[in-house]
Amino acid sequence: MNSVVCIAQVPDTETRIKIGGDGRHIDETGVKYIVSPYDEYALEAAIRLKEKEGGDVTVLGFGPDRVQQALRESLARGATKALHVKGEAGDADSLGIAKVLAAAIKNLPHDLVFFGKQGVGTDNSLVGPMVAELLGYPQINVVTHLDAAGGKVTAHREIEGAEEIIEAATPAVITAQKGLNEPRYASLKGIMAAKKIAIDTKSIADLGLAESDILNQRVTVVSLELPPEKSGGRKIDGSDPQAAAKEIVRYIKEEAKAL
């Protein structure tokens, strides 16, 4: 069972977002980058399958040099190979990124292709299904449980108020949701072993793609803004629970027009 896990590198979720000078991107000064949290569940699922069934786990990242750090961390956790496609992923839209990843995946051993259900930050939830379409694979999105063996994958997909159990033929694309597993930390042994694995690097041109197509955006950011600062409303003393409860109900009825 071979897997490819696509890794997105994103600003730490603790980051206080500031707008950059161009008014279209965030100010990257002092931003700490992490592996997108949902990708950690994807990686853990792939490593567990490898431990059970054998095979390779290749981590794949597209972006500037700092992406190597995310790939290195993933190797330390148990991935066996890594490919870094160099390029300014920040200048591509989701479909541009998906085209790069799909072209790279074609040349990597895989039965399953994993993503997080969304890249934390841009919050698009687009790239995984786009790669599935570009490769002609089935997709199972927002997965909380997974079994794979013998050319078939069975996964639980989270939907509103329910869960679907879906079977698909492999190769297939899986996007991981929180709850799929409990991701492991890198062990010291893993960190040492990862240092011996060379990260393969390629350019967009090496994949047979034209940069113009990848960077020719179908979705362009016109502006990026912070939400208006909320001033905070009324604060009341809740030492008399009945009185507080009455005031809350009055507020909900009269101002929110609910109830």
């Binding site: 905070g232 009341i236 809740g238 507080a244 409860a245 809350i248 507020y251 101002e255």
Partner: peptide, 20 residues
């Protein structure tokens, strides 16, 4: 960011609110 903030003990206020 709250429009209405209640400073107090949720263990007494929430049940009172449910009744209300």
């Amino acid at each position: 960011i709250a429009d209405l903030g209640v400073v107090g003990d949720l263990f007494t206020i929430v049940p009172a609110l449910t009744e209300e």
